[in-house]
Amino acid sequence: MKQFNFHEAKSVKEAVKAASKNSAFLSGGQTLIPSMKLRLSSFSDVINVKNIKDLQGIKVSGKSVKIGAATKHAEVASSKDVKKAIPALAALAGGIGDMQVRNKGTLGGSIANNDPSACYPSACIALNAVIHTSNRKIDAEKFFKGMFETALKKDELVTAVEFTIPEKSAYIKIPNPASRYALVGVFLAKYKKETICAVTGAQPVVFRSKEIEKALNNNFDPNSLNDLNLKSNEMNADIHASAEYRASLVVTAAQKAVINCK
């Protein structure tokens, strides 16, 4: 790993002030540190934000679950409040990486990194999340821009994510057996007026499958997706799965999600 200056930020203000063109915010570091070790990235300054008080904690109100950006996956997975309000979100957090990654990795770090195969972005989209940052609020639909690309400015820090509680929801991940990242992950959230189907892992960035949503809005039943063939030309293809296979997996995962919706 190349040399850098380590900063311990005690407040959001302090973290933002220390940020520059060549700095990175360190939260759980479960992606940042491996990528620095492999020299895929290097920074002059690394700003530790995981101990900032304003970035901690889980708050459930009548309509939403607000989770501090530095909350670890293991905390979300075991939170009684999250399990009660949005069980699919707790289950999603409990399936990220492995136990050690979940003990260190954080919600804010995951969405700021926006890995195309990460789980959390699909929850943000399906649960109409609002991303709170050091200076504004961003709708999830406008936050995830492209592969590893978000609406965040260099000196902008995610402080919390506010998820809207649905009537019921489910997250189905078809994991890569080695990395446990999503080959395909489908987050389905059923609201009074509509069903939202957010898909991760299948394209360069998380997206809503309008075809699946249309079919499920007509009839919320796994069989209503039986004859659905998604176009494969925009799907990712790699050594783990072809584009056609991913297109098929999205439908299968969505059907399983309907069955498991609670």
Partner: peptide, 18 residues
């Protein structure tokens, strides 16, 4: 893997300064 404040973490993926 070591325990940091009672939780298992991978010590190759954490900074000593942290």
């Amino acid at each position: 893997v070591v325990h940091v404040d009672g939780k298992s973490v991978k010590s190759c993926t954490m900074l000593a300064a942290d």
